[in-house]
Design a protein around this nucleic acid. Sequence first.
DNA 1: ATTTTCAAT
Length: 189
Amino acid sequence: MPWISDHVARLDPETFYFQFHNLLYAYGRNCSYICYRVKTWKHRSPVSFDWGVFHNQVYAGTHCHSERRFLSWFCAKKLRPDECYHITWFMSWSPCMKCAELVAGFLGMYQNVTLSIFTARLYYFQKPQYRKGLLRLSDQGACVDIMSYQEFKYCWKKFVYSQRRPFRPWKKLKRNYQLLAAELEDILG
DNA sequence: ATTTTCAAT
């Protein structure tokens, strides 16, 4: 698979501000980004294992969502059966129903891996199948949450070429977060 | 309150 090692470490500020804008109805965000962080344990102490950014890719007419790209890379290059991992995803779009099923299956298969998801926006959140996907992930033990100011600020510092400039929150960040969090709460019951 | 979408007209 050609996309296995094709990910980037950091985002440009403009890309981050546009792609992670937490709108309920986002225009023109025709791609998806995952800023990821993987933690493992050495002698029972948590240690940072890896971090970076994945995005979706179209290769030879095949669409590969960022979640699938991450899992392909992680399973092929990183995952060891005798180690425990905690993965955190900061996503621009929440997973589609197919990716939700894929990731839930992955979590079911690898009991040594746990996952926390923070998403900036909810993908097709009015469609029942997409809502069920998120519920399925949650039922499989994934923590699913909406990115708040705290997560945006963290991502800005960790995953963006911010050149020591401070994170500048956009208008209605907090209000949008509240609306999305209420929607997610409804989805997850 | 908003009506978009891991592109394709």
